[in-house]
Simulated scan of single mutants.
Amino acid sequence: MSFGGPYNPYPPPPGPQNGGPYPPPPPYVPPQPPPPYGYPPHPSPYGHPPHAPYVPPQPQPPTTLMGSLRSLRDAEWPPLHVLLRAGRARIHGCVWALALFPCTAMMTWPLMAGYVFARSARSQAHRLFPPRGHRRIEDPDVVRVARLRAWTAAVMSVLLLVMYGKPEDFSEAQQQYMMRIAVTPPLLLLSAPVVIAFLFRMASPQTKAQMRPRLRAAGRSALFYVGAVTAVPLLFVAITLAEDNMSTNPNGGFPWVQLALTLPIFWVLFFLVFATGPAVRTGFNSAGVHAALPALLTGVLVWEFALISLAAGGLPPGPPVVQILAVLAGPASVTAVVRWELHRLRTRYGVVLRA
C-alpha cells in the first residue's frame, strides 16, 4: 500500500514505507523572533514569499495648473533659500545671471523681499485663523445642500439681470458685490458677539465653563485683526507727518523713516489679504465656541445683507412679484437650510441650544 501519490491529498503516515527503514527526522529549525506588532506573516499556499507590509501611497506632485495653485494655497510656503535651491537645478544658469544684472536686479530683489514678507504674513494669518477650522462638526450633506443653494441663487440672480436688467443694473450689481465684500468683516465683528451672547445665555453652567476659554481665544484673534486694520491708516498718517517734518527740516533723515514705516504697511496688507477669508469663514474663530454658532451666524448675516442691499440699491429689476421674490427668496432659503442643519445637529450629533 502506498501513500502520497500525485492525486492523493493525504500525507503518508509516520513509519517505514513499504517495509523499508524509518525516514530521517527533519532538520532542526531554531525558533524565530516574532515579527513587529505580534502578527506572523501569512504563508502563501503557492510557495510565494509572504506579503510585504502595506505602505500608504505618497502624495504626488500636481500636474495641472489648478492643482499647483490649490497646492500652493493649502500647503506651507517654503523659505526663500529653499525655494531658490530647488529652482537651481531646473532654471538655466543664464537666467540666474540675468536676474543679477543691475538693470534687472531692481525687479528681482523686490520680488524676493515681497515673497519673504508675504510668507511671513501668511504664516501668521493662518496661525491665527486656520483655513480649515470654520466648523467643529462638518456634515457632508449640509455642505452639499448649502453649495447647491448658493449656485442656484447665483444662477437666478444672473437670469434676473439678463431678463429684466438694464446696462446700469449690471454695474450696480457689481458695486453691491464689492460693497458686500467690504462690509462683511465689520458686520461680522458686530453680529458675532450678539449671537454668542444668545448662545451663552441659553447654555448650562457646564457648557459655559467650556465656552469661556474658546471665547477668550476668539476675542484675541479678533482684536489682532482689528489692530491690523487700524494700523494701516495710522502708518499712512505717520508717513505724512514725517514728510511734513522733512519739508521743514531737510536733515531729518526722512528716507530711513519712510522705509521704516513703509515696510510694516506691506506686511500688514499681506496679512489682511491672507487672513480676511479664513477670518470671515470662521467668524474670527468664534465657530469653535459652539457647534451651532456657524449656522446661527449665517442665518443672521443673510438677513442683514438683504436689508443693506435693499437700502443701498433698492429693489431688483422686474415686475413687483419678481422683485419681492428676489428680495425674500435668498434669505428665506438660507434660513431653511440653517433650520435643517440645526435639526441634524440635534438629532445626529446631540448639539442643542438650551443645554
Score class of each variant (00 low, 15 high):
residue 351 V to E: 04
residue 294 P to A: 08
residue 292 A to S: 10
residue 344 R to C: 02
residue 109 W to Y: 06
residue 309 S to F: 06
residue 11 P to A: 03
residue 224 F to M: 11
residue 275 A to S: 11
residue 236 F to T: 12
residue 189 L to H: 12
residue 136 R to W: 05
residue 252 G to C: 09
residue 193 P to T: 08
residue 271 F to K: 04
residue 177 Y to W: 09
residue 211 M to K: 00
residue 145 V to I: 12
residue 136 R to Q: 05
residue 279 A to Q: 15
residue 82 V to Q: 13
residue 297 L to C: 01
residue 350 G to V: 06
residue 152 T to D: 11
residue 177 Y to S: 06
residue 173 A to W: 04
residue 27 P to H: 03
residue 118 A to G: 01
residue 126 H to T: 06
residue 186 P to S: 08
residue 183 V to E: 03
residue 308 I to K: 15
residue 13 P to K: 00
residue 322 V to K: 15
residue 233 P to R: 03
residue 306 A to W: 06
residue 135 R to P: 00
residue 298 T to S: 02
residue 114 G to N: 15
residue 349 Y to L: 09
residue 291 A to F: 06
residue 348 R to F: 05
residue 331 P to H: 08
residue 196 I to H: 11
residue 174 Q to P: 05
residue 197 A to R: 14
residue 110 P to F: 14
residue 344 R to A: 03
residue 207 T to R: 06
residue 166 K to C: 07
residue 155 V to K: 11
residue 74 D to M: 02
residue 316 P to Y: 12
residue 140 P to D: 11
residue 205 P to Q: 04
residue 62 P to W: 08
residue 244 D to V: 08
residue 120 S to F: 13
residue 152 T to E: 12
residue 341 E to F: 00
residue 231 A to Y: 11
residue 238 A to S: 09
residue 289 V to G: 04
residue 243 E to R: 15
residue 268 V to Q: 14
residue 305 F to N: 04
residue 330 G to V: 11
residue 226 V to C: 13
residue 158 V to P: 13
residue 187 L to D: 10
residue 165 G to H: 08
residue 73 R to F: 05
residue 144 R to Q: 15
residue 5 G to C: 00
residue 158 V to E: 12
residue 57 P to Y: 09
residue 299 G to M: 01
residue 295 A to V: 07
residue 170 F to L: 05
residue 258 Q to F: 07
residue 349 Y to C: 10
residue 231 A to F: 06
residue 131 P to F: 01
residue 207 T to H: 01
residue 305 F to W: 06
residue 229 V to W: 13
residue 92 H to Q: 12
residue 350 G to W: 06
residue 209 A to S: 05
residue 124 Q to T: 15
residue 262 T to Y: 07
residue 303 W to I: 03
residue 168 E to F: 07
residue 280 V to C: 02
residue 189 L to R: 08
residue 104 T to P: 00
residue 52 A to N: 12
residue 8 N to P: 00
residue 200 F to T: 03
residue 231 A to P: 02
residue 29 V to N: 08
residue 181 I to M: 06
residue 273 V to E: 14
residue 201 R to M: 00
residue 129 F to H: 11
residue 310 L to T: 13
residue 161 L to C: 01
residue 347 T to C: 03
residue 108 T to H: 15
residue 222 A to H: 13
residue 23 P to R: 09
residue 171 S to Y: 08
residue 33 P to Q: 07
residue 2 S to M: 01
residue 224 F to P: 10
residue 228 A to Q: 15
residue 41 P to M: 09
residue 322 V to L: 14
residue 22 Y to E: 13
residue 50 P to V: 04
residue 227 G to R: 09
residue 266 F to V: 10
residue 318 G to V: 09
residue 270 F to C: 14
residue 355 A to F: 00
residue 182 A to N: 04
residue 322 V to E: 09
residue 285 N to S: 13
residue 312 A to N: 04
residue 213 P to F: 02
residue 52 A to H: 07
residue 1 M to R: 02
residue 223 L to I: 13
residue 241 L to I: 08
residue 174 Q to T: 13
residue 41 P to L: 08
residue 31 P to E: 12
residue 112 M to A: 12
residue 174 Q to R: 14
residue 201 R to P: 01
residue 286 S to N: 07
residue 126 H to C: 01
residue 255 P to C: 01
residue 195 V to Y: 03
residue 290 H to A: 00
residue 335 T to S: 06
residue 312 A to G: 09
residue 111 L to D: 10
residue 271 F to R: 10
residue 203 A to K: 00
